[in-house]
């Protein structure tokens, strides 16, 4: 009761998804602040050694449901089992990865439990709240913090009256940190066949094939990123040239992706990928919060912008005022000159 729950997603390779491990890390801190337990929810066909992984994150209880109906993921069987667990356990907080699984499952759960859910949080904190109208005090609320409205403002959202307080978080936003000491978690098993009804099994998967991602932004040490200011898909070629020379990847802002300058997989930001490269070169990017949320942890940031007052310059180590069409070829030339 009143504990912090993390829904642990099981990947194609039968491992716990990175984002779930990040949420366990964050969940542990929230649980410590509140003085409550951290509990994991795992739904799969056979847990195997996934439980070992979870134990490394200081989890107190693992809720385990094993059934062939639960892997690969389908909405209704997972929905029904998580609903049953939450109705029985009454979590204080429930966290889900903002993946195609978490964003499919969490809203349906929030709907049936009639509780609040905040999508794509970039920060989670515990704090108090006083209702300005009634003067009523609320202790230890989960602050669900996210950029809103195209990333131009930051909103702190709370759910004063309903439980669990639910949130989804993108991969790479929270830091992955194992617990100092390994804990032996209590395992609670569920009889899936007693929970599922025939109508939960109406959807059948007839084909799945995995297409590995072509773009690996998370693993890139150097990222050359373009915004709407790049101006065209053709101009983006210069970014590819620089990335090729430096051994990096090309990324883009949402505005650039929406304008068709770059593919969706390259989007960095709150609703895209979060990256922490050693070098981030921001070309023609003004720096909306929604974009910065995905890159401000980069070790070094270079901004190239015609506007000397572009907001991104505030977080840049080097702010180059100028036309990227002029600057990028020079960077390539000087790199070639000095790197040999």
């Amino acid at each position: 009761m009143k504990n912090v729950f993390v829904y642990c997603e099981v990947t194609e390779e039968k491992r716990i998804a990175e984002v779930s491990l990040e949420l366990l890390s964050k969940g542990r801190k929230l649980a410590e602040t509140l003085g409550v337990k951290l509990e994991a929810v795992v739904l799969t066909d056979q847990a195997g050694d996934t439980l070992e992984t979870i134990q490394e994150f200081g989890v107190d209880v693992i809720h385990l449901a094993e059934s062939v109906e639960l892997f690969p993921y389908r909405t209704l069987p997972h929905f029904r089992v998580v609903q049953a667990i939450f109705e029985k356990e009454q979590p204080e907080i429930a966290l889900f990865g903002a993946t195609s699984v978490g964003r499919d499952l969490a809203p349906r759960i929030a709907s049936v439990l009639r509780c609040g859910l905040t999508a794509d949080c970039t920060s989670l904190e515990i704090g108090d709240h006083v209702d300005t109208k009634t003067g009523k005090e609320y202790k230890n609320m989960l602050y669900q913090i996210r950029p809103a409205f195209g990333g131009n403002i930051i909103a702190t959202i709370i759910n004063p009256e309903t439980r669990p307080q639910m949130a989804t978080v993108r991969e790479g936003v929270m830091k992955l940190e194992k617990a100092d000491k390994k804990k032996v978690a209590q395992i609670k098993n569920y009889k899936v066949e007693e929970i599922l009804k025939p109508e939960d099994l109406v959807i059948t998967i007839i084909d799945r094939h995995i297409e590995p991602q072509k773009v690996n932004l998370k693993g890139a040490g150097i990222i050359v990123s373009g915004g709407y200011g790049v101006g065209s898909k053709e101009n983006f070629k210069l970014l590819y040239d620089l990335a090729a020379v430096l051994g990096g990847e090309v990324a883009a802002t949402r505005a650039a992706v929406d304008a068709g300058y770059a593919e969706h997989e390259r989007q960095v930001g709150q609703t895209g990928v979060t990256v922490r490269p050693k070098l981030y070169i921001a070309c023609g990017i003004s720096g909306a919060v929604q974009h910065r949320a995905g890159m401000d942890q980069s070790a070094k940031i270079i901004s190239i912008n015609t506007d000397p007052n572009a907001p991104i310059n505030a977080i840049a180590d080097y702010a180059v005022t100028g036309d990227l069409m002029e600057v990028l070829p020079k960077m390539i030339a000087y790199y070639k000159k000095y790197s040999k």
């Binding site: 009639r114 509780c115 609040g116 859910l117 905040t118 709240h129 609320m141 602050y143 669900q144 809103a148 131009n152 403002i153 930051i154 909103a155 702190t156 959202i157 709370i158 759910n159 004063p160 009256e161 309903t162 919060v289 907001p311 505030a314 977080i315 840049a316 180590d317």
Partner: peptide, 15 residues
């Protein structure tokens, strides 16, 4: 059930 507690415009600490 969700309430907006605060909305902050973004002020950047100049690096």
């Amino acid at each position: 059930p969700t309430k907006v507690k605060t909305i902050d415009s973004v002020v950047l600490a100049q690096k």
